[in-house]
């Protein structure tokens, strides 16, 4: 096949793209017939190489994607919210300072029992955040996330029982909605004129509540509807079984697609199905190009510098570009590759 000139290969591939039958293509070049047939065999294999996704895998990916989007949106809203109480403390002190503090005062154990409003609550949250950021495994992250969300709910329950005042924040399934209150994760959140609703909370879906406790009551400041995240009725128990608090919903921060088996697929989100993406085949493709470009044209066009598309993520990721340059095996230049192959031939 290597005897076929690049120009002839381009011509053959043009004919493939135009939808010419393989037999017609081969018969058009009697001298190179066998080599062209081998080329067409490769093209045929290539056109059958890709596979289609399982519906369950697509649904799982969609759900994780939207959950992550909702989490990111909530974090952005939180960042815009004026810092209060422990949150201000948490933002002010770096994790290193926190760690030093805990080391010096041995407060880790004490902090674990801290409630919102306590002096050690900031360090407690910092420790949780640090543990999350140091965890690599997706399932472990989900476990931690579930445990911490359950902890937030238990804290609110304790505050309400003790009648203490504190700023609180938690997530859970919406169980009931009325004009003046919403029940999330079993906790009744009172709504007033100052309560801000972000999105439309739906029954059975996830919501994030930011508010405060006072005199045994819980008041909402901001309720964020994490739309599209359905709380599964029979989700796997991945939080500590000894937890007696209501089970929170795990919001995936790093979506990990489950195996594409019917039993492992999560509850699908009911959505309208948009127009499916086009999945053309080689035969469908045709650009009408007459292959009239001269050799000079080809030489010029292969200048790797000609790619400065603003939408090319490569252009904007300096770190990765540096990474590329550090990898001697990383060869993106087609010409260089040919040189490499020549060396192999030698």
């Amino acid at each position: 096949m290597s005897n076929l000139t690049e120009e002839l290969l381009v011509e053959i591939l043009d004919r493939v793209e135009r939808g010419d039958a393989p037999a017609d293509i081969v018969s058009g070049y009697p001298e190179e017939g066998a080599q062209i047939a081998a080329t067409l065999a490769i093209v045929d294999s290539l056109s059958q190489l890709a596979s289609r996704p399982y519906v369950s895998a697509k649904q799982a990916s969609r759900q994780a994607f939207l959950a992550q989007a909702a989490g990111t949106q909530a974090d952005l809203l939180l960042a815009k919210t004026p810092a209060v109480g422990w949150r201000r403390l948490f933002r002010t002190l770096s994790f290193a300072t926190m760690a030093l503090f805990l080391l010096l005062f041995g407060g880790a154990v004490v902090a674990r029992e801290a409630l919102p409003g306590d002096f050690l609550y900031g360090p407690k949250i910092a420790l949780e955040s640090a543990r999350m950021s140091l965890t690599e495994d997706s399932s472990a992250i989900l476990q931690l996330s579930g445990r911490y969300q359950a902890e937030r709910i238990a804290e609110v329950e304790t505050l309400l029982r003790l009648g203490r005042s504190a700023e609180v924040e938690f997530e859970g399934a919406v169980e009931e909605i009325s004009a003046d209150q919403i029940i999330v994760a079993g906790l009744t959140v009172l709504l007033d004129g100052e309560t801000r609703l972000e999105g439309r909370p739906q029954l059975g879906e996830l919501a994030r509540v930011m508010g405060y406790t006072e005199d045994g009551q819980l008041f909402g400041r901001i309720i964020i509807a994490l739309t599209g995240i359905v709380v599964p009725d029979d989700s796997e128990e991945i939080i500590n079984p000894s937890q007696t608090t209501p089970r929170p919903t795990q919001v995936s921060v790093r979506p990990r697609v489950e195996a594409a088996t019917p039993t492992s697929s999560p509850t699908p989100t009911p959505t309208s199905s948009p127009t499916p993406p086009p999945v053309p085949t080689v035969d469908d493709s045709s650009d009408g190009d007459d292959n009239s470009d001269g050799p000079d044209d080809l030489e010029d066009s292969e200048d790797p510098d000609d790619n400065d598309d603003p939408d090319d993520p490569d252009d904007n990721e300096d770190h990765d570009d540096t990474d590329d340059s550090e990898d001697p095996d990383d060869n993106d230049d087609p010409d260089d590759n040919e040189d490499h192959e020549d060396t192999e031939d030698d």
Partner: peptide
């Protein structure tokens, strides 16, 4: 890829030629 069609055709041809040689 923000390249010319001719460049893509050449890349494609070289790729398939290279595949053929390897296989």
């Amino acid at each position: 890829m923000n390249k010319s069609e001719a460049s893509i055709k050449m890349l494609q041809a070289r790729a398939i030629a290279s595949l053929g040689r390897k296989l």
